[in-house]
């Protein structure tokens, strides 16, 4: 289960990125960022397996779904997976706030890299607002998603959001 659940759940999220939700123009960066966030979380959660190569494939699927250049979200998925693999573990009931902080940094990095790479790809400066907005939303909903994934896995230590620490 710990091997199948991460891949299947991210796959569902990848397909969800292509569904016509009717999002405004400024919110188009949010669905793929949720996919990146899930890859990061599954790599960070102890007891679950999401190999780097699988993260690459899921990122590539996101590229196919988004209709954008192939390799773009695959690259971001690799960044998310690698940082997720090295993020502070939640094993032993440790608070997830540090993980949240790490994701904030990673999301900012992915947002900036996406904007730069996207601008380079289309050879003009893109509007940074959708990237910034998507990054911000992904940071804000991170605790919710993490809690959801932990609930799905069942056997993992439940996260404690202590308000005192960063």
């Amino acid at each position: 289960m710990s091997r199948i659940l991460p891949a299947v759940s991210v796959l569902v999220a990848v397909f969800a990125t292509a569904i016509p939700w009717g999002l405004p123009a400024g919110a188009t960066f949010i669905p793929p960022m949720v996919v990146m966030m899930m890859i990061f979380c599954w790599r960070a959660l102890p007891g679950t397996v999401l190999p780097l190569s699988l993260a690459f494939v899921l990122g590539l699927l996101t590229d196919f779904m988004s209709g954008g250049p192939l390799g773009f979200w695959a690259l971001m998925a690799l960044v998310a997976a690698q940082t997720g693999g090295r993020a502070p573990s939640l094993a032993g009931g440790r608070a997830p706030n540090r993980l949240w902080l790490v994701w904030a940094g990673v999301a900012a990095g992915i947002g900036a890299l996406s904007w730069l790479l996207g601008s380079l790809y289309v050879v003009q400066w893109l509007d940074p607002w959708p990237f910034a907005f998507g990054t911000l939303v992904s940071i804000l909903i991170f605790p919710l998603l993490l809690r959801l994934l932990v609930v799905f896995t069942g056997g993992l230590p439940k996260p404690k959001f202590d308000r005192g620490s960063a």
Partner: peptide, 12 residues
């Protein structure tokens, strides 16, 4: 499908 990304606006 709503194939819209940060620098792409297309539909299927």
């Amino acid at each position: 499908a709503d194939a819209r990304g940060p620098f792409l606006r297309s539909i299927l």
